[in-house]
């Protein structure tokens, strides 16, 4: 549940810009993003493939690697500026204060090391003076926390199922009780029952630690099951953010609406509707609103002026020129938007 308003944010991102240098100029994969997260809060971050979610997650840890670079902005973690930290401070901060469960974490486990050695490595890199017996006990505790039997510690990654590997990666990420956990698509490759188990595990871990979580996903489905608040990314920007129910039932940004609608339910058969067109090239963003070439509502101003985030509801912001003129998103124009054919 969202924390009361007076609490200081545990994570505060301000005007973050991350670029990939390419032969054609910088690709603006994270474009002027600001978000703030309260302790214990669950923020979902969703958007199509390539919208910049992983780039953003990586930058929060200051793990951006060339050709990527953090062009500007600040990331304050519990009052400390990650961008200003020395290499040593940064090493200590990662895992201890903020931990990333990377996209494809299952395959990030070292295939030739038993699980217990990998977990112990992570712990001893940050704490000194723990005896072997204490370390073993800690490994067992961490595995139990993610619902794995203690004997799993002796196994190699290939001896684990996908869901078990994903949970092992979670055990490593939470080994030092971080204040913020960033989970980048932790369940994409898993079947739904295992997804549910993994998400329940993440929820339990978070409750135990009182940590804030940023959960990254493709669509509203999984995120709705978990998050208090949802941010929608499009072409490097957060185009809308708000409490999860409002985002599903009363989205204001046309892209959020289309993203919600592209996920069919199991009540009525309906036509499957993808979002027509493709995201813009990040090196050459259209002037004005990045979504304007695909937006069924686009009007003149959208093509010329970049919309800034504005309040569109209780704790809900959207970057869209339909507001403040409209009080809600108008009904979708009938018929598909075929100005832009699917390439």
């Amino acid at each position: 549940m969202s924390a009361p308003k007076e609490v200081d944010p545990v994570l505060e991102v301000t005007n973050l810009n991350v670029h990939y240098d390419t032969g054609h100029g910088p690709a603006k994969a994270v474009n002027d993003v600001s978000i703030s997260l309260k302790p214990g809060e669950r923020l979902g971050l969703i958007g199509e493939s390539g919208s910049g979610k992983t780039t953003m997650a990586t930058a929060l840890m200051r793990l951006t690697r060339p050709p990527g670079r953090i062009a500007s902005g600040s990331v304050m973690l519990d009052g400390k500026d990650i961008m200003a930290m020395s290499a040593r401070e940064l090493r200590e901060t990662r895992l201890r204060d903020i931990a990333l469960i990377p996209q494809g974490a299952m395959s990030s486990l070292n295939p030739v090391m038993r699980l217990e050695e990998q977990i112990i490595d992570a712990i001893v890199a940050h704490t000194s003076g723990m005896k072997r017996a204490a370390l073993n006990a800690r490994v067992e505790e961490l595995l139990t926390n993610v619902g794995l039997a203690a004997e799993v510690a002796r196994r190699f990654p290939h001896e684990l199922s996908g869901g078990m590997k994903q949970r092992a990666a979670m055990a490593i990420a939470t080994s030092l009780s971080p204040k913020v956990i960033v989970a980048d698509e932790p369940t994409s490759a898993l079947d739904v029952v295992v997804q549910r188990q993994v998400m329940q595990t993440l929820g339990r871990l978070q409750d135990g630690l009182g940590a804030a979580v940023v959960l990254i996903g493709h669509d509203m489905g999984l995120v709705a099951q978990f998050a208090d608040r949802v941010g929608v990314m499009y072409a490097g920007k957060i185009v809308e953010i708000g409490p999860v129910r409002q985002m599903i039932e009363a989205p204001r940004h046309p892209y959020t609406r289309l993203l919600v609608d592209s996920l069919p339910g199991i009540k009525v058969k309906q036509a499957l509707i993808g979002i027509p067109g493709l995201p813009p090239p990040l090196v050459n963003l259209p002037p004005g609103c990045s979504f304007s070439p695909r937006c069924p509502f686009a009007f003149e101003r959208c093509k010329n002026e970049v919309p800034q985030p504005q309040e569109v509801g209780d704790r809900q912001q959207a970057a869209c020129h339909l507001y403040p003129e409209h009080s809600a998103l108008p009904p979708m124009p009938v018929g598909p938007n075929d100005t832009e054919a699917q390439p």
């Binding site: 739904v192 329940q200 709705a224 099951q225």
Partner: peptide
Amino acid sequence: LVSSIPLPDLDKVWGADEIPVTE
């Protein structure tokens, strides 16, 4: 299987009950 589908429907949120794991 059906109750585990992550639907964007807040009235159908997964319960907290653990599901037995099998490999």
